[in-house]
Structures are given as structure tokens and as C-alpha cells.
Design a binder for these strands. Structure first.
Lengths: 170, 170
DNA sequence: ATTTTATGTCAGCCTTGTTGACTTTCCAAG
DNA sequence: CTTGGAAAGTCAACAAGGCTGACATAAAAT
């Protein structure tokens, strides 16, 4: 049985019967799944003086090496003071390198050091393992639907940033 | 083009080619989508002295009226001290009622007052609107895949709790 | 009668978010 | 060349919401 009734609207478009119960299950799925999503990296981070904020910084610096602080700021959606605190400890601890921009010397371009790469790899491997297992168990069509729904759930600005990250899978 | 190659393994099971890039996009989709997921309720909560923690409590009390503190604790995955702080303000403000158990007088059974129901409705409607729009734009097959992947991403214990919440959509 | 369970509470700590104020550096326009 | 403004960094203070540990009370279970 499908969970969704289907109808044709006046314009011929597909309509869905979405009960509040179905929407609630979607909401709760997001809640519980996000917990699982962060659980493995969180466990690793307990062994360091780092938290989720550090993980996010490492992830996006690794993803876009040489990104500026301002760019990272808009991706992470926090204040520069918040990010700076995290960044400072990562730089002090030798996980992140901050290089003064060549063209614009006000800008700082961020790179992971080998030590930073190592921790990022540890964290992201744990997270990818879970994601991989989930993708495998759900199957390719489910994965496609998963990404479609998540993308539609983002704010326009986030979707823009999400899409601007390179995607070797397309 | 499908993002996923397919093969048959030795046992005939479907295999997926999942590149690290595809997994990263999944990880980033979760990150950005969760921001969208919480954005609307967060905006509403700014007008109150409440935060996301209060929203979660209201949600699950509304979902399972009469639930005990212990049960809520295990659903939310926080300490009783954390939950108590939230619960105390909600009770003081007259959004939640705590009734001593009839069979077991040690237990407190939690219910929303009309005032609590009103705020919960406000918050959940905002969240459901976004979820509904995302479900509509992605289509029924995508919604099914979305839930399959999220469910597979949960820890076993969370999945148990997720499934034990009633689902009128099945 | 004793132990265990469910709940509540106090105190203190940490991470990670916030705002506001201020400085330094440096590009670019007048 | 000077000045305005953008980019970045820093300091201080604060809040939400996690955490631990210790302790209290009532009631159920043994």
C-alpha cells in the first residue's frame, strides 16, 4: 500500500494526500535520524577538546580548501565571533592553516594541515560509513528521493550554497 | 542518468557504487536541510523565552499525552536535569500539566494545557508547512525514499522509539 | 525493613551560540 | 594622498542547553 493517495489537480499536476500524521512522521524521522547522523563523529570528538562546531569547520575547509573566513561564515550560518573561537583553537593546535590572501591581503585563506586532514578523515569516515550503510540498505531510488526531499526542505540561500559545492556524482 | 551504478554481488544482491563524493553530498544535504527544518519554529520561539528544547518537549508530550518523565527522557536523549529545567518553565508558565500517576504515584504523567496545545500547534504548523511543501515538490516516491534512508540512519534504539510512535499513514 | 525506582533540585561546568564595541589592515574611490 | 568602508580579529559579557555529581523524597518492589 502506498502511503500517499494521488489525484490530478485542475492543471493536471500530481496531488498528494498528506495527512498531518504523515508529516509528523517525517518530522520525527528528521529528529531521530539527525541524532544518528551526528552520533559517530560526536563519539570521536569526545577524545579531543573539540565539539561539533570544530567538525563542521574541518569539513567545509576540507571540502573547499583555501576558502575565506567570510565564505565559511555564510556556509555555517554563525557569527564571526563564534567561528573565530573555533578557528583559533584549530589554528593554535596546528590543524588549520590561515594564509593571508595574495590578491586581497585582508582575506585569510583556510587550509587543513596534515594533522587536520587526519582528524577530518577520521570524523568523516565514521559519518560516511553510517551514510553508506543507510544508502545501501535503502537502495538507489530511495537515495534519490532522500536527496530530493532534503533539497526541497532547505532555504533558498542554503540550497544555493549546497549546489555550489562540487558534486562528482552527477 | 542515475547517480548510482548497479551490479549483482556474489549472492545476487543489488550493489551500489557509492563514491565518497555522493556520500558527502548526502552529509551536506542533512546539514543544510536540518537548518531549514528548524528555521521556522526557531523564528516563532524568538518571541517567547523558549528554545528548541521546549519545542521538542511540547512536540512529544502532544504526540504521546500522559507520557511519563522517564519516557520523555529516553525519547529526547538528554539528562533529567536538562529536561527538568525545560519542563519546569513549561509547567510554571501553564503550558504543561504534570499529573501524579494513579497506579504508580511516583510517576508524573505529562499533558499539554490548552495554552500548550496552542503553542505546539503554532510551532508544528510552521514545521509541517515546510515539510508538506518539500514532500509535494519531491513527489510520493521521493517521500518514501526519504523516510527509508532516514530510518536506516537511526541507531537501533532510536528506530525502535520512532516506530513505536503511532503512524496513521500505514 | 531494606533496596530500588521515579522524580525533583541545587550547584557548577562546558560548548556554542549571541550582541556590542573596538582595532588593525588594506583596497579603492574621491 | 586621504579617507571611507570592507575584511578580519579580539575582548567582554551573556544565554541556552547540554553535562556531572550530590542529595532529597516518595512510593514501589523485594
Amino acid at each position: 500500500m502506498s502511503q500517499h493517495g494521488r489525484l490530478r489537480g485542475p492543471g493536471g499536476e500530481a496531488l498528494l494526500f498528506l495527512t498531518d500524521e504523515q508529516l509528523k512522521k517525517g518530522i520525527e524521522a528528521m529528529f531521530f535520524a539527525y541524532r544518528g547522523f551526528t552520533a559517530d563523529p560526536d563519539r570521536i570528538l569526545e577524545n579531543y577538546a573539540y565539539g561539533r562546531a570544530h567538525h563542521r569547520a574541518l569539513h567545509f575547509i576540507h571540502r573547499s580548501p583555501g576558502t575565506t573566513v567570510n565564505n565559511l561564515l555564510s556556509i555555517l550560518g554563525v557569527t564571526k565571533q563564534s567561528l573565530n573561537r573555533v578557528l583559533r583553537t584549530l589554528i593554535e593546535d596546528g590543524l588549520v592553516e590561515s594564509r593571508v590572501g595574495r590578491r586581497d591581503k585582508r582575506e585569510r585563506h583556510l587550509h587543513l594541515t596534515p594533522k587536520g586532514v587526519a582528524l577530518e578523515k577520521d570524523l568523516s569516515e565514521a559519518q560516511r560509513n553510517r551514510m553508506r550503510a543507510a544508502f545501501r540498505s535503502a537502495g538507489p531510488e530511495a537515495v534519490s528521493g532522500f536527496r530530493q526531499v532534503l533539497e526541497a526542505m532547505m532555504d533558498a540561500e542554503m540550497r544555493r550554497q549546497y549546489n555550489s559545492l562540487k558534486d562528482a556524482g552527477s
